[in-house]
Amino acid sequence: MFGWGRGRAKSARDAAEDELHGSAAEDQDALDGGPFDESEAPDDEVERLDLGSVRLPVPEGGQLQVEVDPAGPVRAVHLVTPVGRLTVSAFAAPRSSGLWDEVGEELADQLRKDGARVHTEQGDWGTELVADSPKAALRFVGVDGPRWLLRGVAAGPAELAKDCAKLLYAVLDETIVVRGADPLPVRTPLPIELPEAIQRHIQQAQAQNNNGQAG
C-alpha cells in the first residue's frame, strides 16, 4: 500500500530523533528520498505504475486519467485522487543542473498572463510555484536529475491545496525516472508508454465511442 513518503509525514518518534541528532538526520532523509534515477532505484516493496519514462506509485483511492493525442501518442497521465489531480512528467535535460529555474520562470510568466496569481515557496527540492487560478489551486514542483527534469503538478480545490501538495510530495518521493540513453533535445518530453492492459482498455473505450457516434 502506498504511504505518504519518507520525510514528509514523520511520526512523533521520527521528529524527536531529528531534534536529537540535528542536521545529520535531515541529511540522511535527503539521501534516502527520491525521486530516483533508474541507476539508483531502490529495491523496495513500493508498487509502481510503469509508464516507460517514469515509474510512479498510485495513491490509495487514486484513478488514472490518460490524455491521448488524436495521432496516437500519450500526451499525459494524471492521477485523480480525492484531494485533487496529480501530474508527473519527465523531460530531457542537460548534464548540468538548473533547468527547473529557467523553466519555472517561464511557467510563472505564462500563468500570470493567463490571469493567475503566482508566488514562489521553498520546498524540499528547491523553488516551487504556487498559483491561484479561477479553476483550481495549482502547485508546480521541479526536480533536476541526471540528464532529466521531473515536474510534478498538483491541481485541486483551494481548501484541499495542502493535502494535495503533501500527496504530490509523497508521489515524487517514490518516483523512478528512466531517462534512456538516446540523445534528445533539451526539454523534450520523455515518452510515456502505457501498460498493455491500460492500452487495451483505452482502445475498447475508443471503439465503443466510435460505434456510438456511427449509430
Score class of each variant (00 low, 15 high):
residue 71 A to T: 10
residue 176 I to R: 01
residue 155 A to D: 02
residue 143 V to S: 00
residue 147 R to T: 05
residue 4 W to V: 01
residue 187 R to H: 08
residue 126 G to H: 03
residue 151 R to L: 13
residue 87 T to H: 06
residue 93 A to F: 04
residue 137 A to I: 01
residue 174 E to D: 14
residue 74 V to Y: 02
residue 47 E to D: 11
residue 21 H to V: 10
residue 64 L to N: 05
residue 3 G to T: 06
residue 94 P to R: 09
residue 95 R to I: 06
residue 70 P to G: 09
residue 103 V to N: 00
residue 104 G to E: 10
residue 106 E to Q: 15
residue 153 V to G: 00
residue 169 Y to Q: 07
residue 156 G to I: 04
residue 169 Y to P: 00
residue 193 E to M: 08
residue 144 D to P: 09
residue 168 L to N: 02
residue 44 D to N: 09
residue 9 A to R: 14
residue 167 L to M: 12
residue 48 R to C: 11
residue 18 D to G: 12
residue 63 Q to S: 12
residue 32 D to Y: 08
residue 199 Q to K: 13
residue 88 V to L: 12
residue 204 Q to H: 12
residue 70 P to T: 07
residue 95 R to W: 05
residue 56 L to W: 03
residue 3 G to R: 01
residue 207 A to W: 09
residue 6 R to Q: 07
residue 107 L to N: 02
residue 33 G to W: 01
residue 14 D to I: 12
residue 58 V to W: 03
residue 187 R to P: 00
residue 40 E to Y: 11
residue 190 L to R: 00
residue 165 A to R: 10
residue 208 Q to F: 08
residue 94 P to A: 11
residue 176 I to T: 02
residue 198 I to N: 00
residue 97 S to Q: 10
residue 59 P to K: 04
residue 50 D to F: 07
residue 135 K to S: 10
residue 172 L to H: 01
residue 49 L to S: 05
residue 126 G to F: 06
residue 4 W to N: 10
residue 196 E to P: 00
residue 51 L to A: 09
residue 97 S to Y: 01
residue 190 L to Q: 06
residue 195 P to L: 05
residue 68 V to N: 00
residue 100 W to Y: 10
residue 55 R to N: 09
residue 52 G to V: 08
residue 126 G to L: 08
residue 184 L to K: 06
residue 72 G to N: 07
residue 67 E to N: 11
residue 187 R to G: 04
residue 188 T to V: 10
residue 169 Y to K: 08
residue 203 Q to V: 08
residue 178 V to A: 04
residue 107 L to P: 00
residue 198 I to W: 11
